[in-house]
Write a protein that binds this DNA or RNA. Structure first.
Lengths: 114, 114
DNA sequence: CCCATATATGTAGAAGTCCTACATATAATA
DNA sequence: TATTATATGTAGGACTTCTACATATATGGG
């Protein structure tokens, strides 16, 4: 993920990519390129998923059984691999969200000097 | 950083460690061990900074000029290296907080389907 | 018709952070 | 006396992400 407007490298929030991808797939199956577009647009162009992050991530998710894929045709008529979230993937997403919220709250406490 | 209660590895929120360390140093200079304790306690034991992350991070911050250090004596009478945040470090902290908030909002938008 | 751009997938190599495990040393406590 | 807490640090590896590259097709402007 990169953040336009911030020239420095962002190591910030590594590990949220899987969560974001799984989330976009809860609405409907999508191909990789469309997933990246969704994340970019929904985030008001703050988040950009690079190809070099996107496709390895999708392979990772599939290897773990959280998504399945099949070749199909995109609305533009080009071949595209569509990804579908599995039951296991939905469970994983729920856990990642819980974990994310928990860590976020913890960080907030530290930053506020609790 | 590891999170007790979550057996799985957390890649979550990588890159926030520098911000957390700098924040704890805004109150007063501290030695490494005390910084880790602060983060652990303020986060209600959710965040644990491992030695293998802590000391390399402190060296990193010093190399970038965001903290300075000097050998001194801890309240327990042992030798300890005390770290002080620099003006440059405070500026960096401000930028990291802005960046963090911005990315967080963006993630929130994606997760809410905005 | 041609060329640039958008769509679409993927790999290779490197950078960087973080973790586990180890090594060392002293003070306090049981 | 032995273990735990305090205190610093390194080595090696795992993992994610980025940049850059490679490939291919469809569309729209000139």
């Amino acid at each position: 993920m990169s953040r336009p407007g911030s020239p420095e490298k962002s190591e910030l929030l590594k590990g949220t990519l899987d969560m974001l991808i799984l989330k976009t797939l809860t609405v409907q199956p999508l191909h990789g390129y469309a997933i990246a577009q969704q994340i970019h647009e929904l985030s008001d162009s703050v988040l950009t998923v690079e190809q070099g992050s996107l496709y390895p991530a999708l392979q990772r998710l599939q290897k773990k059984g959280w998504v399945t894929s099949r070749w199909s045709e995109s609305p533009t008529g080009r071949r595209a691999r569509y990804y579908t979230i599995t039951a296991s993937g939905r469970k994983q997403l729920g856990q990642e969200i819980s974990s994310f919220d928990r860590v976020l709250l913890a960080i907030h406490r530290v930053m506020e000097g609790a």
